[in-house]
C-alpha cells in the first residue's frame, strides 16, 4: 500500500469518527453522552494527525497526539467533575433543562424532571443510573443473568 492510500484510510476513519461524534453531540441530551461524543470527535482529529504525521515521515504528529491524549485525560476528569456538580444542583443531566441563560420571552424546551417523569405519554428519555445508588435490577433479568 502506498503512502497516499494509507493516508486516505486514516483520513476517512478520522473523518468518520469526527462526523459520528458531531452527530452524537448534536442529538444527545444527556451531558455525559454529549461529553463522550466530544471525546470521539477529539479522537477523530487525533487519528488524522497521526495519519498526516506518518505521511510526512516525521514523529511530531505522533508525539503531538500523545500529548493530546494526556491533556484529554485531565480534561475528562475536570469535565466529569463539572457534570457531577451540575447533577447535584439540578438532579438531572438533561441539557434541555439546563437552559437558564435563555431570554425570558423564549419558552423552555423541556419540562422539569419532576413533571416529565410522571407525565402520561412522556417519552422514556435515556438516562444513566443515579450515581452512588445501587442499581435496581429487574426481576426477569436476574432470573437468567444472576451475576450482573
Amino acid at each position: 500500500m502506498g503512502n497516499a492510500a494509507l493516508l486516505h484510510h486514516y483520513l476517512l476513519t478520522g473523518g468518520g469518527l469526527f462526523a459520528l461524534g458531531m452527530i452524537g453531540f448534536l442529538c444527545r441530551r444527556n451531558l455525559i453522552l454529549m461529553f463522550l461524543a466530544v471525546e470521539i470527535m477529539l479522537q477523530g482529529v487525533g487519528l488524522t494527525l497521526v495519519g498526516w504525521g506518518r505521511y510526512h515521515g516525521g514523529a511530531e504528529g505522533q508525539l503531538f497526539v500523545l500529548f493530546i491524549i494526556a491533556v484529554a485525560a485531565a480534561e475528562a476528569a475536570v469535565a466529569l467533575a463539572l457534570v457531577l456538580t451540575v447533577f447535584r444542583s439540578g438532579r438531572s443531566l438533561d441539557v434541555a433543562l439546563l437552559a437558564r441563560l435563555r431570554e425570558d420571552t423564549v419558552p423552555p424546551q423541556a419540562v422539569p424532571p419532576g413533571d416529565w417523569e410522571t407525565a402520561a405519554g412522556s417519552p422514556a428519555w435515556p438516562r444513566l443510573p443515579t450515581v452512588g445508588r445501587r442499581p435496581q435490577i429487574p426481576a426477569d433479568l436476574t432470573d437468567y443473568r444472576p451475576r450482573i
Binding site: F25, V95, L101, R102, T105
Partner: peptide
Amino acid sequence: LRDVQTGLIPWYASAMM
C-alpha cells in the same frame, strides 16, 4: 434578536457547525 437566545446547548452547537 431575542428569540435566538434559547439557552439550549445543541442549538448553539448546530449554529456553530
